[in-house]
Structures are given as C-alpha cells and as structure tokens.
Design a protein around this nucleic acid. Structure first.
Lengths: 238, 238
DNA sequence: CGTACCGTTGAGGTGAGTCAAAGTAAGTGG
DNA sequence: CCACTTACTTTGACTCACCTCAACGGTACG
C-alpha cells in the first residue's frame, strides 16, 4: 500500500543521526544484540502508561504516536519514519509512556534497552547532547500549533499537514506533480489535526474543489506545490 | 496585584533543581556574573524568532511564554514560576526562539550565557542529563492536550487550567477554600486554553453558576476542590 | 475627574461534531 | 474468478460551542 523507503541502519553514521557519535566497534556490539523485531501493520510497539524500556529505532516502516485522553479521544502526536528514534521522551522524563506507538505499515524496529543507553551515554558525553537537540526539536511548538490550533481553518491545517508529510511520504514526478502515498487513513489524519474523520473528508473535498489536490483513498496528488503553500501560509478569502 | 512568592536562588541546592548538581564554588562564580536583571510587568525577556542567548532562571515573578502564528493568533505555551528555567528549548534545538517570554509581574531573572552553559555542561556530565529530564517533562503532551484539546468542553479545560495553576498561584485557606491570585488576565487565560477572552468570561460564569468557583477579576475562589476535580476529570451531563 | 484599559453582555453567524445510512474498496474462501 | 465479509470512506441533516463584532460597564491610574 505504501511505498517502503529504503531500510536504514540506525547506527551507521549515515543512518539515524542520533547515534552518529558511536564508533564502528560499538556499533557492531549493538547490532549483535537480539533486540531487533518485526511488527506487523497495526501492531503496538509500546503502549501509553507502560514503563519505558529504552530507545526504539525504526529501520523500516512508519509508526504513529498517539494518545488517548480520559474522554476516549485519540490524538496523534506525530509520525515516525525510518532512521528516527522514539520512546526516548518518557525514558528521559522518567515517566510512563505518554503515547502509544502503532505500526502503520510492517516495521523493523530495534530497541536499545535502557541499561545500554545508560552505558553509552556515560561513555560518550556527546550522545546526551545529541538527544538534548533531538528532544528539543521534536514535536516543537510551531508544528503543534500549525496542526492543532483551532484558530486556523481546517483546510489550512490539512495543507500544513501535507507539507509536513511531504518529505517522508511524497515523491516528485518529472512533470512537477507531487504524489503522496499516505500511510495514514482518514482516522489517523483526523487525529493529527484534531478533528473527526468526516471533517477531514469534507476539508479534503474542499481543497479538491479548488483544484489544489486530487485524492483517492490514501493517494493524494498535488499539481502545484506553490498553490498549496499559499493556502498553508496565508489564506486568501474566497 | 499578585502575591509574590518568596525569592529563589537558582543555583542553591534547594533552588532551581536544574542546577542542583553544581558545587558551592561554582555557584559563587556564577552569582558574581553580572547577568541578573529586573524586568517590569509587561516587559519582554526574550522574543520569538530571536537567537537564544542562554538559559534564563527566574528568581522572582511570573513569566508567560507565548507565540504568535502567521495569522496573528496568540497562543500561550506555559507559565514559568520562580526557580524555573526557560529559553533552553531553543538553545538546545539550535533554533531561534519559538516563543516570546513576557513578564506577568515584576521579575528578577538571571541569564546564564550559552558559553557558560557549554562550560558547565562539559565539566558536569550530570547537567545535560538533568536538562534532558527537564526538557522531556516540560510542556508534556498530557498538559497540552488537557488545555488545548478541542474535544473537551471549555469549562473542563478551564477547570484543568486552574488545577495546574493551583501550585504556583493558589493558597489554601484554613477553612479549606482555595484562593487564586492569578497573574493572568482574561486575554492570557484565553491564550492558554486556545479560545477568545469573551469565551473565557462566559465559561467562568458557567462555573460560577454551578457554584464551583467565584471570581472577581484576577481573584478566583474555589470553595471545594473536589467538585472542581469532578468537572476537570469526567464531566457529568447537566 | 477624565481617560484608557479591561471585562462583560448580547445578537447573529459558522465550522465542526454527531448520528445514521449508503457507498466503496480490500480481504477471504469456495 | 466470483460471492461474501469486513473495514473504511462518503454523504446528508441537524445541532451546538465558540467566534465575531459592537456596545456597554467597571476599575485603575494619571
């Protein structure tokens, strides 16, 4: 369904940047550990309220981080793509997981157990500094506001979501068209922008009526990215 | 207007926990630096899009972190109280400030310049670990959802906001009543829960009609915290 | 005592929620 | 390959919480 991006070795210097400080010998040691696992589409990798086990690194596949509040509403906190880490926030906060990680596609994931993380952090002062940066950048206020701010019309938030999903999920065709193979269903898109799936459908149709996108299920085509940027940035009144 | 909490020495072991790892000699050095400054109510301490200068530590007063989007909407990201640090997220992210810090009351603030931060981090591996924890805990997903999730009725979000503001802004009277001296005006309360000031007024009135609170300007009295907890947690239908 | 700011009130508009039903694609087994 | 099941998506009607704008009232401050 969703074109798989090439596999990533989390520990290679060109892989997940978070571990780029390690030297080859340690990488070998890490890779020998038996913590690699395959998750099928829909499977849960870790669960909200569970105690953090370590840091998860995605080698292949897409993962959605989402959480549920006391009223049963699901909110998506972000999409994780190959090469990215997850589960570190709760580990560092010394708190239970605030989110559930669900495999959107079949995934290959490595877990670096907390003890190993501790050892590596002690041995390489640059590593905690690196994660300080990763943590400070992730789910940054700007993105959260763009997607979840209820001041902004839904179509603007969806346009922004598409622009954010561009890097991991879209390919640029020779003719300039942008084609997304979204790993997210309506339900998940809705959870990302904080509305109901029906509203996402209507808003997408609204964008389609303006010839900004065309879509069919999970495949979205954007004929001109510039026009989408206009909607996302500053929306001209109809 | 707002009862001042006692002053805090950011570097004392009992002060701001973020710096608790430093030993007394270094604390003295830090304190000798001329980076303490007084900000008047309403003054800006640092501004969205500015380059981060270092880590700010509040000794006295309240500070509101807020940001403005492309459409001119203001969103409050959090309240900082004496003993807390701020400005570190953008410093670690190596990005311009995502938020503006405005003094809600007169404030005494210390700035630890980035160079000193670097030196301290190199000398004390425990310091970056400490900030890893602080960063991972701050503006955590749970709180943001509680306050800004548009699924929840406004009165629920406001009740949650009051409960969050309880620790820094409320005193428990002998008879069990809880009395808040909010440093936040309607406008700021509105920015915290993501609605307009008028809606905050109406929602507060709604809570007052149910005898959950009484308020007059910035002073809010809660006769029974348990009943407020009920509203915040699981709202019974009228 | 006047001014400026903040807060309140009211009327009217609207974007998104809700619920229920119909439509469509993907997956399964014969 | 087709019939069947199941899950996802779309559509429509209705409701409501919050927004908008404008006018008014209070409080603080000079």
């Amino acid at each position: 369904m969703c074109a798989f991006p090439s596999a990533v070795n989390c520990f290679a210097p060109d892989g997940c940047a978070d571990w780029a400080e390690l030297d080859p010998s340690e990488v070998t040691v890490l890779e020998r550990k038996q913590y690699r696992r395959i998750y099928r589409r829909g499977e849960t990798i870790f669960h909200q309220a569970d105690e953090p086990q370590g840091i998860y690194c995605i080698e292949t596949g897409y993962v959605l981080l989402w959480c549920m509040d006391a009223f049963g509403n699901e909110t998506a906190l972000g999409l994780r793509t190959p090469g990215e880490s997850m589960g570190y926030r709760s580990l560092f906060a010394e708190e239970p997981h605030a989110a559930t990680a669900r495999a959107l596609t079949d995934c290959r994931v490595r877990l670096i157990p907390r003890k190993i993380v501790e050892q590596l952090f002690d041995a390489h002062p640059a590593l905690p500094r690196r994660f300080l940066r990763t943590l400070a950048r992730d789910h940054g206020p700007p993105e959260a506001l763009l997607l979840r701010g209820q001041h902004l019309p839904l179509r603007v938030r969806l346009a922004n979501l598409l622009l954010i999903l561009k890097e991991p999920c879209a390919v640029v065709h020779p003719d300039g068209r942008l084609v997304f193979e979204l790993p997210l269903a309506r339900h998940d898109l809705a959870a990302m922008v904080g509305v109901r799936p029906e509203s996402v459908g209507r808003a997408l149709k609204e964008l389609e009526d303006k010839d900004l996108i065309t879509f069919r299920r999970q495949r979205v085509t954007v004929p001109s990215i510039d026009r989408l940027l206009d909607v996302a940035g500053l929306d001209e009144l109809p």
